[in-house]
Structure formats: structure tokens, C-alpha cells
Simulated scan of single mutants.
Amino acid sequence: MHYQILFVVFLVFATMAPLQALAILFATSLFIQNLGDAATCSDCFVHSRAAYYPNSDEQGSDTGRCGFGTFGATINDGDVSAVSDLYRDGLGCGACYQVRCTNSNYCSDKGVTVVITDHGGGHQTDFILSRRAFGRMAQTTDAAASLFALGVVDIEYRRISCSYPNKNITIKIDENSNYPNYLAFVIWYQQGKKDITAVQLCETQNFVCKLLDRSYGAVWTTTSPPSGPLSLRMLFSDEDGEETWVVPLNNIPGNWKPGETYDSGVQVNV
């Protein structure tokens, strides 16, 4: 498209005075730059709709499709959400979004920051918020009651960096793990706005690494895991294709146990 615009401008140049041609060239360059900025704007808001969990308490669900368990109901003080397309086969689990409704009579300019912990959709919505998060989009308590009465509202959203002050990335061993034959875990407290697109599990003795499978949601699994203390390698990727490998300082102990959590010793903001 940009080349087509330049070609048309070139044809116009042939019939114009030099100063006029220079002015048109400058305006065209600004127009093309704005087109590029609009196409790559990662901070722009997207319009959609949002509902809320009708039968939930204030917080989220502890059976969410991301596999976070009770952590998925309470993380971010319960300001969590299920999503439809943004779930991305589990890749979107743990991502953070600023969500604000657009009715100026009820809605605040700031909206609410939510963490994705579940998959779901309906009524042409991208987000199904916890009751707590849905109400926090409102200006006042009375306005929140009006939002709940509406049930489904127009919103705009954008992805933002997650922030967990004083927290390192934490590995939670899934309760369905079976030492030493089957290992499954989820990754908690991931800061930034990149996705974890691959995870390797490495022996610390000879550093032989094994690529893990994403079982569902944010659950990474492997059969016949390596023995002894285990080192992780996590690949962080963004929408522009930039990739960064992160290696935690702390290892998963060789005698890991289902249900246990292990502090990685590192945090990211990539």
C-alpha cells in the first residue's frame, strides 16, 4: 500500500513546481509514518464487550482453564478474567489487560487491570470478568450496581505489563504430578507483557535439556523427567518476534513434591 501511495505522488510531482512538490512530499511522509504507527500500535485500545461471572463470588474461579487453581481466583486481589480469543490455546494465560467500560455515566477513565486465568465467552464478549473486577470499572458503588444490572457492557482494552512487587517468578508443581515419573507445573508471578512460548527442563549435572509440552492452559508437562536437581529455561516472546531466554537462579530440587512451590530467584520485566 505504501508503494502505491509513493507511485501516485511521483506522478503528481511531474506536473508541479519544485516548492509545491516538496510540500506534498513532506505531508506524504508524515501520512505514511502515521499509517505505520497505527498498524503497529501495541498500546492502542481495542473495542469489545465484557460480562461477569454471574454465579461467582467476588473473586475468580479456582477451576479456570489456565490451570492456576485457587491461585487463579485470588491473584491480583481477585481482579481476574476469562477470555475467548485472547486465550490463544493457553498462551494468553497470565497476561494482564487494562479494561474500561465506555459508558461515561457509570464508568471511570482508569478502568481495572485484570489477569487472565480462564477461558470463556458469550454475548459477543472478549472478557468475562470476576464480579470484583467488573464493579471496579465503575465510578462509584451506585454506578457499579448499574453496571451489574446491565450485565454486558461495551469496553475498550489493551495489554499492559504485569507487575508483582516483591515477588519472583514461582514454579507451582501440579497436584497431579507423580514423582518421579510425571512432572507438571505452572508458572506464577510473571511480570512484563511477553508470552512464555517454550520451556526447557535441564539436568544440572550434564545440562541435557528436554523441551516440555504445554498440556493445557499454563500447565507444562513431561513424562520421565530428568533426575536430580532441575534447571529451567523459559523463552519469552513478544508480538514483534523478539525472543529472550531466561534462566532462573534457583533449581527445582531433585526430590520435588506435588503441590509444592519453588521460588525461581529471578523476576523479569521484558
Score class of each variant (00 low, 15 high):
residue 1 M to Y: 06
residue 3 Y to C: 04
residue 5 I to L: 12
residue 9 V to T: 00
residue 14 A to S: 08
residue 14 A to C: 11
residue 21 A to T: 13
residue 22 L to N: 15
residue 23 A to S: 11
residue 28 T to S: 04
residue 28 T to F: 13
residue 35 L to T: 01
residue 36 G to H: 12
residue 36 G to I: 10
residue 47 H to T: 13
residue 48 S to I: 12
residue 48 S to W: 09
residue 49 R to V: 04
residue 53 Y to P: 01
residue 53 Y to K: 09
residue 54 P to L: 09
residue 60 G to C: 08
residue 62 D to R: 02
residue 63 T to H: 10
residue 69 G to V: 12
residue 74 T to Q: 10
residue 87 Y to I: 15
residue 88 R to S: 07
residue 94 G to I: 10
residue 95 A to W: 01
residue 96 C to F: 08
residue 98 Q to G: 05
residue 100 R to W: 11
residue 103 N to W: 06
residue 112 V to D: 04
residue 117 T to K: 07
residue 128 I to Q: 10
residue 129 L to Q: 14
residue 131 R to Q: 15
residue 143 A to F: 00
residue 154 D to R: 04
residue 158 R to N: 12
residue 158 R to K: 14
residue 160 I to P: 07
residue 162 C to L: 06
residue 165 P to A: 01
residue 167 K to A: 12
residue 171 I to W: 00
residue 176 N to T: 14
residue 176 N to V: 10
residue 176 N to C: 03
residue 184 A to L: 10
residue 186 V to E: 10
residue 186 V to A: 12
residue 188 W to T: 00
residue 203 E to D: 13
residue 206 N to E: 12
residue 211 L to P: 02
residue 215 S to L: 13
residue 220 W to R: 10
residue 224 S to R: 02
residue 231 S to V: 00
residue 232 L to V: 02
residue 237 S to R: 13
residue 239 E to S: 13
residue 242 E to I: 14
residue 242 E to V: 11
residue 246 V to S: 11
residue 251 N to C: 11
residue 252 I to Y: 10
residue 254 G to Q: 04
residue 256 W to N: 13
residue 261 T to V: 10
residue 269 N to C: 05
